[in-house]
């Protein structure tokens, strides 16, 4: 059996007395889109930061493409792409120049970077806006430029943290299509963190549900539906499956009548 691209064993992060991520154990296989679900503050971003080597785990282990991100952060970062929530850009620079800076940081020579940048801008539909300053981009265009930044790096694994937050329906649709194409056309493994369940349902092969720092369920959506509701997934949405787990784990916080 192939080694998982992302693997965590008992991964834990504490901030003083508060446990942000509690003994997280999960695996993500090569080429799949893994939806990482949970409400705000569930520990999704903290998990991603640990997988990128940007935050040190309190205990447990993490491996990305077979490497430990805490011990070898630079080799791991060479293999992954990361789109943070509310991605930032250098506003005074053009879209093209922002991407060129990323390629330079990745050690790509300017002459080799040019076709990569052109291709990425074409893929995300920003080829016509390449010479416009990013300060003049709309929110949707900025998110697409963020995806272009991931594409120019040609990573094996992509971590997307709430990539559709604040986008209008049209921009959301385009973003979801882009995410799906990362796996389908580029062969990348996508680790998609979000609290927007219907969107995750549309693009994910498997999902993991995080509540208060703990992974309460993981697997294909139809399997989770059978496991939690005892019925076929076609009759239930991911939101209903999620709410079942939410009520089990946090009965006091769950809305009445669900």
């Amino acid at each position: 059996m192939a080694e998982p691209v992302v693997q965590t064993i008992e991964l834990t992060k504490r901030y003083g007395a508060q446990v942000a991520v509690d003994r997280l154990t999960l695996e993500v296989s090569e080429g799949e889109v893994f939806g990482f679900l949970g409400p705000n503050g569930a520990g999704k971003t903290t998990t991603i930061l640990m997988l990128l080597g940007l935050s040190e785990p309190s205990s447990g282990t993490a491996r990305v493409c077979g490497l430990d991100p805490t011990r070898a952060p630079v080799p791991v970062k060479r293999l992954v792409g990361y789109l943070p929530e509310n991605v930032g850009f250098y506003e005074d620079m053009t879209g093209y120049d922002n991407l060129q800076y990323v390629t330079r940081l990745n050690g790509v020579r300017d002459r080799d970077a040019r076709p990569r940048i052109e291709g990425a801008l074409e893929t995300v539909g920003l080829a016509g806006e390449r010479r416009k300053r990013v300060g003049a981009y709309s929110k949707g265009m900025r998110q697409r430029l963020g995806i272009a930044e991931v594409l120019v790096r040609q990573p094996r694994v992509v971590f997307l943290d709430e990539p559709t937050v604040g986008l209008d329906p049209d921009a959301t649709q385009r973003m979801l299509e882009l995410i799906r194409s990362l796996s389908r056309d580029q062969g990348m493994t996508v680790f998609l963190s979000s609290h927007l369940l219907d969107q995750v349902q549309r693009v994910s092969d498997r999902v993991g549900i995080m509540l208060a720092g703990r992974l309460v369920a993981a697997g294909p959506i139809d399997e989770l539906a059978r496991r939690s509701l005892g019925v076929d997934q076609a009759r239930y949405t991911l939101e209903e499956i999620f709410m079942r787990y939410f009520r089990q784990e946090q009965p006091a916080a769950a809305p009445a009548g669900r």
């Binding site: 990128l52 630079v74 970062k77 509310n86 991605v87 930032g88 250098y90 506003e91 940081l105």
Partner: peptide, 17 residues
């Protein structure tokens, strides 16, 4: 300024120390 522009997480997530 990098924090205000939200470019710092992106910068340190590149393959640089």
């Amino acid at each position: 300024r990098e924090r205000a522009l939200r470019t710092l997480p992106k910068l340190v997530s590149q393959p640089v120390h």
